[in-house]
Amino acid sequence: MSVRRTRLRGILGQITTIAVTLLGLLMLTFVIGRMMPADPVRAIVGEDATRETYEQVYLQLGLDRPLWEQFLRYLGDVLTGDFGNSIRTGKPVIEDILHVMPATVELATFAILIGAGLGIPLGVIAAVNKDRWPDHVVRVFSLFGHSMPIFWTGMIALIVFYAALGWVGGSGRMSQFYIGMVPTRSGFLLIDSALAGQWDVFRSAVNHLILPASLLGYSSSAYITRMTRSFMLDQLGQEYMTTARVKGLSKGQTIWRHAFGNIRVQLVTIVALAYGSLLEGAVLIETVFAWPGFGQYLTNNLIIGDMNAVMTCVLIVGVIFIGLNLLSDILYRLFDPRTK
């Protein structure tokens, strides 16, 4: 009974935290929308509108009302799923974002799989061989990934692997030839093309995805490697590792069966955060590879001052991070018996 009650209280506490965070986030986006030097009325009516038209739109937007009332109205709109229309496309912002998001999710997901798949083993290798040559090699390799500007590596990689070697596809999500051949269902090109049985398109999509995803994965693996190495070093010095060795386990067995289980929780957290920042939009890589994703959408709208779109994008990024934090909290409880 009391266990259940404390657990219930924990869940309620979590929900409150999320609600407060969301409210704070909404306030922030609202303030950004009002403080930006871009004039929302001018953006709608255009440069040569008459004074009457301007005033009419000004009143329609409720800009004459006090700020708190405007905020409440914004809050109400958001809660009912109305994020306003995009000035650029005239369509509801949320529709536009749902259209570009799958491209980014696809890219980010592959990138994080590569990043974690590369970074975690490398971090473990570096920790186990601390201050010996594998450690140095790994450190140089990840420092390289961390410090090379991604737009530059992106271009060089395109020149080498696409233009010179022809191993991968160029810019965009698939070859020009295939565009429009697959009906959009989920928006995830790999899923849609597989569902439609269009394996040529699928192959083309993989071909185009592999290079930007590898580059993003490599750059986020730098962080993951470094953190894995330090988490692992902490565990390698623990007494229970000696116990495992005394039992007759080999060094490798003690690392994977004992130490790795103890860093899982921390790994989940940092991989989730890395994934979040990839979703937030790999603006540079999306630009270099002409990838029609979230990062590109956000940048374009920032440049022309389409505030409804920008506010919604910021909101979504916030929601993504809240969601990932929640997820890593849940996994934390799953992986660590001490948190029960």
Partner: peptide, 8 residues
């Protein structure tokens, strides 16, 4: 406290 693996 230290010689047993805390999560097994």
């Amino acid at each position: 406290k230290f010689s047993l693996n805390p999560i097994q």
